[in-house]
Amino acid sequence: MTAPEVIDCRGQRCPLPVITLARRLPELPVGALVRVLADDPAAAVDLPAWCRLRGQEFVGRVDGPDGPGFDVRRRR
């Protein structure tokens, strides 16, 4: 397993982290995992909701030294 690509959305207000993810994910192969770093409290709600609406997999939240990270896998 390679480390996930990191998309740094820290300092961005919603909906920007969702938009950034929506732009990047289709450029990656199906099955790829990305980690979205986002400190806007709305990201914790909106990233999983976007995955549900778009049929992508929300893998989970990781709280590391870089703040909250949200792992998403491209499914389609």
């Binding site: 709305a42 709600v45 909106d46």
Partner: peptide, 14 residues
């Protein structure tokens, strides 16, 4: 902060 209601439902808040 996003609405705690929308967050609790897990629906889009923006």
């Amino acid at each position: 902060r996003p609405s705690h209601v929308l967050a609790a439902m897990g629906v889009l808040s923006h």
